[in-house]
Design a protein around this nucleic acid. Structure first.
Lengths: 229, 229
DNA sequence: GAGTGGTCTAGACCACGGG
DNA sequence: CCGTGGTCTAGACCACTCG
């Protein structure tokens, strides 16, 4: 008698794990499982939906539920505000504004943000520090037309990262991770040698149909982004 | 009259977005919202649970539901089998086994896998190709004691990646992303210059309490991992 | 057409944890 | 203590899609 959906999930996972139900194979439908487990169908539904979300099950109306044959691993990355990322590991957070100006961005930026190539954006460069040592170098473009009030924010004490979270809304975004080398301009800021390998994140956030901000962050050497699987 | 949980979710998101409910603020309880929306409480529950999972709401029994003040962005990464990642972008997948042997691993590996430092593991090195060009270099250690049958797998035609998915079970794992530079040994295999920046993933998977495999993958220069936000 | 998952409902009980 | 979210139930209708 399995009483709650987490028990059902555990039992289903056990059967998949034990190869009772093999990859690619169909599993019984919800009604049958509910009867077997002695619970309501909605409880089984909740459990199976949860497993399907993790990628281990493939569910389709009428076609039924089958065990995924090549389950792609799914990992949920939590990307906190940089202050919290640093303080969360017990280190002291520091912040330093490098520059703030209104400029015409490189075409790569305006294109990505779907803006005319001759418009101006707010350009912020800042350094985040952990225990007074360089941690990450932020290079950000903000569309002031989409973020009211940003013209009055000077970003000297509070990072654009946090200010935007409090003051700007966004509906969705994209993020990319890659690797690059420290250039001669960036290396001294990050306290590393030119040519050192750097982990990079690039984010682009949207408010419905308009790009809010685009940011590229270079992390000091040794940075790792980790998560469970 | 909001009839389904997705409409409820949309309306709640709209109110958060419109700052009707500000960051850190409490929102009405489920029963009240259900009454207002003209639907059952469970429908509201489903919607709010979904939003909470994305990090925008913070829910606690008795304390109620409040809008997150510093919502950490959450992104779900889908990490497919390498073959599917390459074929999914319309390129031809290629695979080449570089070496396969039984060795005593470096202590870093045995320690991470929580194994005695004098035990042996199966060591696989392989190259994944996209359109006949180097795509990623895989360096993997497998515990044959945890994966029955792995001693008979030669991995000449099928990658360890795929073989393990079909033949080995795992319950959980960890994954880390970072950056490194191409060493003199790896550079020619990846078709790049020594010193080129490489994106790296390191994965460690477990079957309950025993480490199954540890793999480090170096991606050829230019690789990006992207996802929605 | 018919079987399957997706969802809604109304009511109920319970666990947690703030006050 | 007691309000709030977490969950279960039984039944119902519906949408999708396979055959």
């Amino acid at each position: 008698m399995l009483r709650d959906w987490q028990s059902v999930r555990a039992e289903v996972l056990r059967r998949i794990h034990a190869r009772d139900w093999k990859p690619g194979e169909m599993i019984p439908n919800e009604a049958d499982l509910a009867a077997e487990f002695g619970c309501a169908r909605s409880t089984v539904n909740r459990a199976l939906r949860d497993i399907a979300q993790s990628g281990l099950l493939d569910r389709r109306r009428k076609a039924g539920t089958r065990v995924a044959s090549n389950p792609a691993a799914r990992a949920t990355l939590t990307i906190p505000v940089m202050r919290e990322e640093i303080e969360g590991t017990g280190r002291k957070y520091g912040y330093q504004l490098l520059s703030r100006s209104t400029e015409i961005p490189p075409v790569a930026e305006s294109a990505a943000m779907q803006l005319p190539p001759d418009g101006t954006l707010l350009h912020i460069r800042a350094l985040h520090l952990a225990d007074d040592r360089p941690f990450a170098l932020e290079n950000r473009w903000i569309d002031p037309g989409v973020v009211p009030g940003v013209a009055d924010a000077h970003f000297e004490r509070i990072s654009a990262n946090e200010w935007l979270l409090q003051n700007a809304a966004y509906t969705h975004g994209e993020i990319a991770f890659s690797a690059t080398v420290a250039g001669p301009a960036d290396a001294p800021l990050l306290g590393c040698a030119a040519g050192a390998p750097l982990f990079v994140t690039e984010r682009l956030t949207w408010d419905t149909t308009r790009a809010v901000t685009r940011v590229r962050i270079l992390f000091a050497p040794g940075y790792q982004m980790r998560t469970g699987l």
